[in-house]
Amino acid sequence: MIHFPAVRQGPLRALSVRLLAALGLVLCVVSVVYLDRDGYRDLNEDGVSLLDSFYYAVVSLSTTGYGDITPVTNSARLVNVLVITPARVLFLIILVGTTLEVLTEQFRTTRRVVRWRRDVKDHVIICGYGTKGRSAISALLETGFDKQRVVVVERNAVALRQATAEGFVTVEGSATRSNVLNEASVKSAQAVIIATDSDDAAVLVTLTVRQLTGGKVRIIAAVREAENAPLLKQSGAHQVIVSSSTAGRLLGLSTSAPPLIDVVEDLLTPGQGMALAMRSAERHEVGLAPRDLEALVIALIRRGRVVSLAEPAGIAVETGDMLVYVRNDRPSNNGVTV
């Protein structure tokens, strides 16, 4: 599908075009009435002049209709039905169309905002719609997260339009400002993902979110430099992802152990083969060793702590454990992931 850029024109030009169209419509009706002036009757019984034609056209198109000039012949009445009445409707659309459009759009937008504020809960706020922000959203959607529960906070106009075009609720402004985060209903959010372009902005956003929510909302932040990670955790971030060191490790592994990079890419790329997943331990799995389970379990999450399977033997699955396992993410022939 081909999309053309929207043609934007100033309000003065738009108003001028509408006024010229209205004037042209008036002149058209005047011409029709004047050419058929013998089919109209004036209360003064002195015939219909050019001025009378202008008068009749204006009062007819504006739906005033004083009735002092009326069509009396069949041809004049037919012209009123087929020409003047549609022209009257078109004239009103030209004059009040813009106002009606603006009022309707404002009313629709207001209703959508009110409805959204009433229903929004347990959503995820993405602060920054750059490469990291878009990747975070993609990962969320791959896990089945509802697209309607993603809110993007962005101050860049281009990125904001892109997020809106892709169907996300967006809030324009800097995430470092409390009023902007309140617009995104940060207090009722499930988590805030901070994917800003700079580490100092990430710290400010973290502090602002913690101040507004009292630490009740989970904060996940990304930083470029590893030395800023402790500062973010002290500011209130629950998890900090260091993008530069992670990329550097992958670059190093690609030299010393290239096959490991293929495995990591396979795990992180959806639909390629293997994928990391997490689920609650089932009742029949409680008491068993993780290695004895049907799924390929690589770690346990127990009371918020990661239990590595590299620890001494004797670890058994307990009630409430979360299993981190590797699943087959390659679609089958019918398009279903197995």
Rank of each mutant, 00 (worst) to 15 (best):
N182I: 11
N182Q: 15
N182T: 15
E183L: 09
E183R: 12
A184R: 14
A184I: 12
S185A: 08
V186W: 05
V186M: 11
V186K: 09
V186D: 00
K187R: 11
K187P: 00
A189H: 07
Q190S: 09
Q190H: 13
Q190L: 15
A191I: 03
V192A: 03
V192E: 04
V192P: 07
I194M: 08
A195P: 02
D197T: 13
D197K: 06
S198F: 07
D199N: 13
D199V: 08
D200Y: 07
D200M: 10
D200W: 06
D200F: 09
A201W: 03
A202K: 10
A202Q: 03
V203D: 07
V203H: 06
L204C: 14
V205S: 07
T206S: 11
T208N: 15
T208C: 15
V209S: 02
R210D: 14
R210F: 03
Q211S: 10
Q211C: 08
L212M: 01
T213C: 11
G214L: 02
G215A: 09
K216N: 09
V217K: 12
V217F: 10
R218W: 04
I219W: 01
I219M: 06
A221P: 01
A221D: 00
A222W: 01
V223Y: 05
A226P: 07
A226S: 14
E227M: 08
E227H: 14
N228L: 14
N228T: 07
A229S: 13
P230E: 10
P230K: 03
L231Y: 02
L231D: 00
L231A: 01
L232D: 00
G236I: 02
A237I: 02
A237V: 04
A237H: 04
Q239H: 05
Q239F: 12
Q239N: 00
V240D: 01
V240G: 10
V240L: 02
V242I: 12
V242E: 13
V242G: 06
V242N: 11
V242K: 01
S243P: 08
S244V: 09
S244N: 12
S245Q: 13
